[in-house]
């Protein structure tokens, strides 16, 4: 068990180095940092001094490890635009994205699993079939279109919910939360649905097909033959076995929720890191872009690691095997 955990940790660290490398390559080689920082009219001597100060003459590996060393201290340099430290920019935007992502993921996971179970148990039923065909829409509509439709219906026509921004936020230390005000919660509704709908349908369909598969297994037939009630069969035997793969996929989806937040944040002008990134792309603000990529990469890796550990907690077969999967 410990062996597995350590191996996973090792793999994660390796992946992080690769992510950092990509992020570094963008930081260092997309555009010319000296031009960006000094403009065209700087003298050659000034340029040389800056190049020396930034360590741009150092060998590649040294620059790379320097980049990592600074990143570990949350130092990503200054934004080209506005000259604020990138880490401060990201820290001010991160809570918005995380609250949005967590809310959508929660919504997608809970509803997805519940509806998935329902449609599996009531296979072929009228409501189950209706849900299934409706869910196809969820998978096939692009995120921005869902967002625009929701805005049109609930913000423009019905005027129930706000169409952009975070509403009022409360500052808890450096963290700003929208969970504590009514307008903050109201503002979360439409973006969360927009961001989570795709994941919801995905998780629902996955839960359903996994559960149907599990219900064909001998241990479920045996549980039935032993005279257990359908509640016991479904929830004690079929469901836990269904959840193993569902949790993996759902966990991985959390990563893509953060990544896909870019679109939703743009549609709803949600002041998170996704919007920050889009603006950074617009102004070729390389340090911000590179820091964002590193951040998303790190998030993916951490989530993966947590999913793997959850997997170990659920499945005794994995816990006992010291070798690979």
């Amino acid at each position: 068990m410990l062996v597995i955990i350590f191996r996973r940790l090792g793999q994660s660290i390796l992946v992080l180095f690769i992510v950092a490398l990509i992020s570094f390559l963008i930081f260092r080689y997309v555009g010319n940092p000296v031009d960006n920082l000094m403009g065209q009219e700087a003298t050659l001597a000034q340029r040389a001094a800056l190049i020396e100060a930034l360590g741009l003459n150092d060998p590649f590996y040294k620059q790379y490890f320097n980049f990592i060393w600074k990143a570990l201290q949350f130092d990503f340099g200054n934004s080209y635009r506005g000259a604020l430290p990138v880490s401060e920019l990201i820290a001010s935007r991160l809570p918005a994205t995380i609250e949005l992502a967590v809310t959508s993921a929660f919504f997608a996971l809970v509803l997805g699993v519940i509806i998935g179970i329902y449609t599996a148990i009531n296979r072929g039923g009228y409501i189950a079939n209706l849900i299934l065909s409706t869910s196809l829409i969820g998978v096939s509509l692009p995120t921005f279109l869902i967002g625009v439709l929701l805005i049109w219906l609930f913000a423009v026509e019905l005027k129930w919910l706000p169409s952009f921004g975070r509403g009022d936020v409360v500052q808890l230390g450096w963290w700003s939360t929208g969970f504590l005000t009514i307008s903050g919660i109201k503002s979360l509704v439409l973006p969360s649905i927009t961001l989570g709908l795709y994941q919801l349908t995905l998780i629902m369909r996955l839960t359903r097909s996994e559960m149907l598969e599990v219900m064909r297994q001998d241990y479920v037939r045996f549980a039935k033959a032993l005279g257990l009630s359908s509640k016991q069969v479904n929830f004690n035997h079929a469901l836990p076995n269904t959840l193993v793969p569902v949790i993996t996929i759902a966990g991985l989806q959390l990563g893509s929720i953060v990544a896909f937040a870019i679109i939703t944040e743009t549609v709803f002008q949600w002041p998170g890191v996704g919007l920050l990134f889009i603006n950074a792309v617009y102004f070729v603000d390389i340090p911000v872009m590179s820091a964002y990529l590193l951040l998303v990469g790190v998030l993916f890796v951490i989530i993966n690691l947590i999913v793997d550990l959850l997997y170990l907690a659920i499945d005794p077969r994995l816990r006992d095997s010291n070798t690979s999967e």
Binding site: Y219, A223, N236, N241, D315, P316
Partner: peptide
């Protein structure tokens, strides 16, 4: 091998 619930 398939008759017992592997998780319990």
């Amino acid at each position: 091998l398939m008759s017992l619930n592997p998780l319990r």
